[in-house]
Design a protein around this nucleic acid. Structure first.
Length: 851
RNA sequence: GCGGACGUGGCGGAAUGGUAGACGCAGCGGACUUAAAAUCCGCUUGGGCAUCCCAGUGCGGGUUCGAGUCCCGCCGUCCGCACCA
């Protein structure tokens, strides 16, 4: 076969994609004896079109999966669809289509787009969470968790989104607004299904410690989300309850503190404005009522509250210090105390808490040092900066001399002994409400019977499938008014009963899909032994936006399934990688009518060296910052168009080049053009392969082997930008080298190195150079002896400044290096007659002469 | 305000405490061509007529024979946030 002058992706891409399909090249073999590798990217929501962020995400995973195959692993690299969710219902309402039809059409389109990119995916394991074959098993697992006591119902105030007509998790409410609709959230009381994630708070927190290959940032975010704090809960007795409290109101209140060690530094107590005690006082005290009303104003975000000035209202009440009843502390209502956390009341130690100090200085309250700051031990605490560091306790009676941790334990022990308080662990994490008042989700498999109460759907009746004949002309959940689906006989008593019409949060669907990918029996969710063979996922790749919710829920489900004995792994994802976004500058003009910016797509704009003009009228547009691609800002490019113009390999190569994968990748037209040119450049290089040429080129052999090793390391570290740079380097070196057997070997090697990244080009060239498919080829072997350089360049410095370099044999003796350095003209000139007082020699690296 | 990350050419970025700017993009010059595209060769941190030198990794200090890298203090940008006691 003679190689054509140009590589034609339009024909080659599709040809090889068909070959891979027909041969099922990327089908994972459950029975394989090879070592296994499970590479997974977060599966997409089928919104309709693949966007450039997907391309980046899946290209990274694909390079790793293909590389692992070349290294001899049996690779599981599956793909599926997170197919339930609100956009389908929104489309149903807006366009009058069925959510299922809309979703399945989107899946078909996006699957074709993914295939067009040549990803090495095992499509035989494709999952759509909206298929009864999937969600029926989810219902069974939900019943298992129910049987294990990890699912319960409770009447509770929920976040009601009046636009989407659904309940939102606390985590899904952003600034009091629905995270999708942006509507102001109202409080409503409904009977809801909950998962007991709080039972796992400690486990989930502890487990983070073993996730060494997760980004520190994500672990920290989860840690803060779980929000464990240990401290002391104790009761303050009110000394002068008669001074304003209603008759019969408790004459004490509880506080929680994480700093019981600083108790002797207490100078006042503070309660939240919504605290029952504050509300009780407000009944008789108009000034207190006014203060509470004032506290309700202002924003609720942390930034707003933090910068707001501290305000307090002296209630006139005093409480007794638990360790020394002679000490009386005033009680304030304060705007910086939160009702939601702990007990809604605190004791304040101004010397060692910044907020308390700000407050104390403002209201002239005592500030007593109880933790030594180095040598500073006197009780009088100066300045406006609280000391929160470690140290010995001072001015604290029986605690004096202890360190902070010992003092905490001592106070808790005494409180428990004297029965005025107890050590307590607090979590911020709350149970996970999974009920959604929506049609397009997994039906919750329960039946409500007037006589029997809430009854699980019998196993043999699963799956509870969604009815197809629904309409969305009326707002609200169509399941509620679908009587033939909703009205059923009670499984227990046979009487008239109703199905649960709520469906599950879609985060449930994505909390176990990685298990179903690994094992897909018909009669059960998964097979325990097969899970044990594939899990945990070796490398999980996705966006940082899932750092908390999805990843925490998936960890919870995995642990819950382990606890009830269904699987043996505790953590689903051994290594996590969060990739950066694809960004582009924006183009806009102010709308003359209202001054709002009107955005234009990159295709509508002609970009010049210092500005941009609109193609339509030739007049300038404003060039905005480089930000994440989004439809609303129109700074998007369509992957399909790029593939049509440059081919799949060029866009894949662009996704891997230049920017480190965890950082944002700025899209550029010239960048993708450069990638397209490089594809052709490699094609021309591959055409120069000639097995008949003889002769060695040792330096080229060495370069080749060094780069093979380096590229492997880079891919394993997901440092694709570095791997790409090294491949450029090798390609350039080969182009400059004269013909030889070594050169032909190096060309063959470059082909194998780029095979995971540009698989179509590689297959096309391999068809003339190699045997079989490059998809089945092995990673190139290297000669270990060649990896070691026999000649090195040594830097020569005078007083730490580079003056010359020496090219010497590796391992040249120190004395010889020193002599060679001193013999250099440049060195002598720099020394300018000065006496060398000291010589530092790092063999094979440098000589530093200190004059 | 708190927590985290980051700060290197025109741009994206390389650099186990040891030759700063690999590699790519853009730009400039040249070759080829009737011409253009494509391709190939060369240059490309700033300054000084420079095969030579000076300065240079946000700013100011420090440690070290030697600092982009380590330490301290600032400044700036981005991300997250729940005053979590």
């Amino acid at each position: 076969m003679v190689m054509t002058e140009r590589f034609d992706p339009a024909t080659a891409d599709i040809r090889w994609q068909r070959v891979w399909d027909e041969r099922q090249s990327f089908r994972a073999d459950d029975a394989s004896a090879r070592p296994r590798s499970y590479v997974l990217e977060m599966f997409p929501y089928p919104s309709g079109r693949i966007h450039i962020g997907h391309v980046r995400n899946y290209t990274m995973g694909d390079v790793l999966a293909r590389y692992k195959r070349m290294k001899g692993f049996e690779v599981l690299h599956p793909m599926g669809w997170d197919a339930f969710g609100m956009p389908a219902e929104n489309a149903a309402m807006e366009k009058g289509v069925h959510p299922g039809g809309w979703t399945r059409e989107n899946i078909a389109n996006m699957k074709a787009q993914l295939k067009r990119l040549g990803f090495a995916l095992d499509w035989s394991r494709e999952i759509a969470t909206c298929d009864p074959e999937y969600y029926g098993h989810e219902q069974a697992l939900f019943l298992d968790l129910y049987a294990a006591g990890l699912v319960y119902r409770k009447e509770s105030a929920v976040n009601w989104d009046p636009v989407d007509m659904t309940v939102l998790a606390n985590e899904q409410v952003i600034d009091g607004r629905g995270w999708r609709s942006g509507a102001l959230v109202e409080k409503r009381k409904l009977s809801q299904w909950f998962l007991k994630i709080t039972d796992f708070a400690d486990e989930l927190l502890e487990g983070l410690g073993g996730l060494d290959d997760w980004p520190e940032k994500v672990r920290l975010m989860q840690e803060n989300w779980i929000g464990k704090s240990q401290g002391l809960r104790f009761r303050f007795r009110i000394e002068n309850a008669s001074a304003g409290l209603p008759d019969g109101f408790p004459d004490s209140f509880e506080v929680f503190t994480t700093r019981p060690d600083t108790l002797f530094g207490a100078s006042f107590a503070a309660i939240a404005a919504e605290h029952p005690l504050a509300l009780a006082l407000a009944e008789k005290d108009a000034a207190a009522a006014a203060f509470i009303e004032e506290c309700r104003k202002g924003g609720t975000t942390a930034a707003e509250i933090e910068t707001a000035e501290k305000h307090g209202y002296d209630t006139g009440l005093t409480v007794a210090h638990p360790l020394d009843p002679a000490i009386r502390l005033p009680v304030y209502i304060a705007n910086f105390v939160l009702m939601d956390y702990g007990t809604g009341a605190v004791f304040a130690c101004p010397a060692h808490d910044q907020r308390d100090l700000d407050f104390a200085r403002k209201y002239g309250l005592p500030v007593r040092r109880v933790v030594a700051d180095g040598d500073r031990t006197d009780a009088v605490f100066p300045g406006d900066e609280a000391y929160t560091g470690p140290g010995r306790l001072v001015n604290s009676g029986f605690l004096d001399g202890m360190d902070v941790e010992a003092a905490k334990a001592a106070v808790i022990a005494r409180a428990e002994r004297e029965q005025w308080g107890s050590g307590e662990t607090q979590y911020r994490l709350r149970d996970w409400g999974v009920s959604r008042q929506r049609y397009w989700g997994t039906p919750i498999p329960f039946i409500h019977c007037g006589a029997c109460g809430v009854v699980p759907v019998p196993r043999e009746q699963l799956p509870v499938t969604l009815p197809e004949d629904v309409d969305f002309k009326t707002p609200g959940n169509p399941l509620l008014r679908h009587s033939t689906w909703k009205d059923v006989a009670c499984p227990q008593c046979g009487g008239a009963a109703q199905r649960e019409t709520d469906t599950l949060d879609t985060f449930v669907d994505s909390s176990w899909y990685f298990l179903r990918f690994a094992s897909q029996p018909v009669d059960k969710p998964f097979d325990r032994e097969e899970i044990a063979r594939w899990l945990p996922v070796e490398q999980y790749i996705g966006g940082i936006e899932h750092a908390i919710l999805h990843l925490l829920y998936a960890r919870f489900w995995t642990r819950a399934l382990k606890r009830i004995g269904r699987i043996d792994v505790a953590e689903p994802f051994a290594s996590l990688f969060t990739q950066g976004m694809v960004t582009h500058e924006t183009y806009s003009r102010a709308d003359p009518a209202n001054g709002q910016p009107v955005f234009f797509t990159p295709g509508e704009v002609e970009r010049g060296a210092d500005g941009a003009t609109l193609k339509a009228d030739g007049a300038p547009v404003e060039v905005g910052r480089v930000i994440k691609m989004s439809k609303s800002k129109k700074n998007v490019v369509d992957p399909d168009e790029i593939v049509a113009t440059y081919g799949a390999d060029a866009i894949r190569w662009f996704m891997l080049s230049d920017s480190p994968p965890e950082r944002d990748l700025p899209w550029s037209e010239s960048g993708i053009e450069g990638c397209g040119r490089f594809v052709q450049r490699l094609w021309r290089l591959f055409a120069q392969y000639d097995a008949a040429v003889a002769g060695d080129d040792r330096p080229l052999d060495r370069k080749r082997d060094q780069i093979v090793v380096a590229v492997a390391e880079d891919i394993e570290a997901l440092s694709f930008n570095k791997a790409v740079a090294r491949i450029y380097e090798l390609a350039s070196a080969i182009e400059k080298a004269p013909p030889s057997a070594s050169r032909s070997q190096a060309i063959r090697t470059v082909l194998l190195l780029v095979a995971p990244m540009m698989p179509h080009l590689a297959e096309e060239a391999w068809a003339t150079i190699g045997e079989g498919l490059v998809a089945d080829a092995a990673w190139p072997a290297v000669d270990a002896a060649l990896l070691v350089e026999d000649e090195v360049t040594v830097a020569v410095q005078v007083k730490g400044k580079l003056r010359d370099t020496l090219t010497v044999a590796k391992g040249t003796a120190r004395e010889e290096l020193e002599a060679l350095a001193l013999a250099s003209d440049k060195v002598q000139r720099a020394l300018d007659g000065a006496e060398v007082r000291k010589v530092i020699v790092v063999p094979d690296r440098l000589v530093n002469l200190v004059a």
